[in-house]
């Protein structure tokens, strides 16, 4: 496994003078392999971007470890070496993109920093190729400042930048949300092509149909905890947690108006499963490669209590 999260948690201090603690991520474990796309879904505020920021070393890790090829990422002293392998594209590109540089300057800086030995012609070809792969017209965007691009154009530029770096792992936080359907498909096909070349991708998305289209595995996060994970076909084909089912029921569809979700009174898959299937902390393996958490394990402690009750 290339990237491995093991019991990762994040606590933020909020409120006046940081007096209160907010546990944004609790005890999350999953892996992203080489040439694998893992989609991370979950409601707003469930900790998706926080996880992404920890992987990108933009936020400290409060508990657990994140390793890359077995190496604890916090021990990699040379950040440049790390970022040569791992890059992120963010939900709100305007916040992380330096507004004073034109696009051509940004690409020139990447060359200086990471590829000083590549010839100028060769580099120009690479830049143009990367831009074209996200359907941007190099002649049109290279001379522009970030605020001169539309939302989706800037988002695609950041994807092109990541592609150009020839990295091993991409954290993509809602990168297709601002693109129209046709451009989305182009970008997704690009991600799929990169995957075929060995790139691992953590794909944060709320578009379940697109998550389903490209990802090998899916992790469903709720209030900072993993409630379900496994092969995408398994999770989408037979969602075992009521939250996953409610997400799937809320997907807007063309030709059909939203209906109220039917009551979900299916029994808790976690407690239905035999105890020996609890192969990961708090998760039961309901079928090979498909884990689910207790449907009602909101408060700590209820889990043990329920087990006792069931016994």
């Amino acid at each position: 496994m290339m990237l491995k999260l093991d019991g990762v948690s994040k606590v933020y201090r909020v409120g006046a003078f940081g007096g209160r603690e907010l546990k944004a991520v609790s005890d999350v474990s999953f892996e992203v392999g080489e040439g694998e796309v893992v989609s991370l879904i979950g409601e707003s505020g469930s900790g998706k971007s926080t996880l992404g920021r920890m992987i990108l070393r933009l936020a400290s890790i409060s508990g657990g470890t994140i390793t890359l090829d077995g190496r604890d990422i916090t021990t990699i002293k040379d950040r440049k070496e790390y970022y040569r392998q791992v890059q992120g594209v963010f939900q709100d590109p305007f916040s992380c993109y330096n507004p004073v540089f034109r696009a051509d300057r940004v690409f020139a800086m990447i060359k200086e920093q990471y590829f000083p030995r590549v010839g100028a012609d060769e580099w120009r070809k690479r830049v143009e190729g990367a831009l074209e792969s996200v359907r941007l017209d190099p002649g049109d965007v290279l001379g522009k400042y970030p605020h001169q691009l539309s939302g989706g154009q800037l988002q695609r530029m950041l994807i092109a930048r990541a592609v150009l770096l020839d990295i091993r792992l991409l954290v993509a936080d809602e990168i297709i949300s601002m693109l129209d359907a046709s451009t989305r498909i182009d970008v997704l096909n690009l991600l799929a092509d990169l995957r075929a070349r060995g790139l691992g991708i953590l794909f944060v998305t709320h578009d379940l149909s697109l998550g389903n289209y490209v990802s090998d595995r899916t992790v469903v996060l709720r209030s900072g905890k993993v409630v379900e994970m496994g092969g995408t076909d398994l999770v989408f084909g037979g969602p075992a947690h009521p939250y996953t089912r409610s997400l799937l029921a809320s997907v807007p569809r063309l030709h059909a108006k939203w209906a109220d979700a039917p009551d979900d009174d299916a029994p808790c898959a976690y407690h239905q499963a035999p105890p020996e299937s609890r192969t990961r902390p708090g998760l039961a393996e309901v079928e090979d490669g498909h884990w689910v958490a207790c449907a009602g394990c909101a408060a700590p402690g209820t889990e043990e209590k329920k087990i006792k009750e069931n016994a």
Partner: peptide, 21 residues
Amino acid sequence: QLISALPEVGVRYEDRRLTGI
């Protein structure tokens, strides 16, 4: 073309590569 580019839930890259415009 825009409407028909919308993927439906259930389509997977391995089974069918969608195309944009």
